[in-house]
């Protein structure tokens, strides 16, 4: 689209600017202020410079939490993206059955995150849950509240259950946008199923896949409610991810200065990775 240079367009953006400045800029500045002080109460704050940052960057339990977070987000992307593509390829291409599929797939996305945790908390239990009981009955010793491996498995399974439909729906809409002529040409060339996927479908899915990766990275990197309800971060701290560590520090222990410094480091990591993704999405369009 050809865009007209017009600085009066700022007036149209102003409401959004004010709203987001109110709910993002003021809090962000406040976090920066908190991060350089040791705060005991409204009138008892002491300037400590960059001590909190020094401590947060060297704190081993925070580093461990970051490590778990990176592994978790990587695992989520590696499982959900291929699985989502596969499901999108399996979906019916049109008609009533396609709409039914879409609605059923969308259900997990519309469940409040704490209820997602509750569903899996119940479903995975060895006594009253179908899944946990089933695994125990066939001879697998499974208990997500006691065994870290089982806990990780359950949290990952829950996330795959919860969010793969989003990837599938994105890919599905990407697939629908491919003109029929491409497939007809492939048929004339007697292209194999794999060749059709590799040279027609996958390249055309690129733009939606970048959105899917971006959304899944951002949301998995800030995951809090689901594992908090499911495992409470345990056993031990084996499924405690960054947001939970931060929330415990800020609200649980009211350790304001340290939590603020940690918040900023966390935010900078997300900002960098997201900027890379965002540039990757928008950069190819710039020349148009």
């Amino acid at each position: 689209m050809r865009k007209v240079p017009n600085n009066r367009a700022w007036w149209l953006v102003l409401p959004v600017f004010i709203l987001v400045a109110f709910s993002a800029l003021i809090p962000l500045m406040t976090v920066v202020n908190y991060s350089v002080q040791d705060i005991f109460g409204p009138n008892a704050a002491y300037f400590v410079g960059t001590d909190w940052f020094r401590e947060v960057l060297r704190n081993e339990s925070l580093q461990a939490s970051l490590g778990r977070q990176v592994v978790f987000s990587a695992a989520v992307l590696l499982i959900e993206i291929p699985l989502g593509i596969g499901i999108a390829l399996l979906m019916p291409t049109g008609g009533k059955r396609a709409s039914l599929c879409l609605i059923l797939l969308a259900i997990p996305l519309l469940i409040p995150w704490n209820v997602v945790g509750t569903i899996w908390q119940i479903f995975g239990r060895g006594d009253i849950g179908l899944f946990g009981r089933f695994l125990n009955e066939i001879g697998i010793n499974y208990n997500y509240t006691a065994d870290p491996v089982d806990a990780w498995f359950t949290v990952l399974l829950m996330d795959v259950w919860h969010w793969t439909p989003l990837v599938a729906l994105l890919c599905y809409s990407g697939l629908r946008a491919i003109p029929q002529a491409f497939y007809q040409a492939a048929e004339i060339d007697r292209a194999s199923r794999w060749a059709v996927f590799r040279y027609i479908q996958l390249p055309r899915l690129k733009s939606v896949l970048v959105i899917a990766v971006l959304l899944r990275f951002m949301d998995s990197f800030m995951i809090y409610t689901e594992p908090f309800v499911l495992t409470g971060g345990g056993p031990g701290s084996s499924t405690t991810f960054l947001s939970q560590t931060l929330t415990t520090m800020a609200v649980g222990q009211f350790d304001i200065g340290r939590a603020a410094a940690f918040s900023l480091v966390y935010f900078l990591i997300v900002l960098l990775v997201s900027w890379l993704f965002f540039t990757a999405i928008t950069y190819p369009d710039r020349d148009k």
Binding site: S23, V31, Y224, S243, T247
Partner: peptide
């Protein structure tokens, strides 16, 4: 535009304390 999107990227946990105070 990117600044707006960066707020979609920010973990809500980061804003928890100042929101409460604000």
């Amino acid at each position: 535009f990117f600044w707006l999107l960066s707020n979609r990227m920010a973990p809500p946990a980061v804003f928890l304390l100042p929101f409460f105070q604000l």
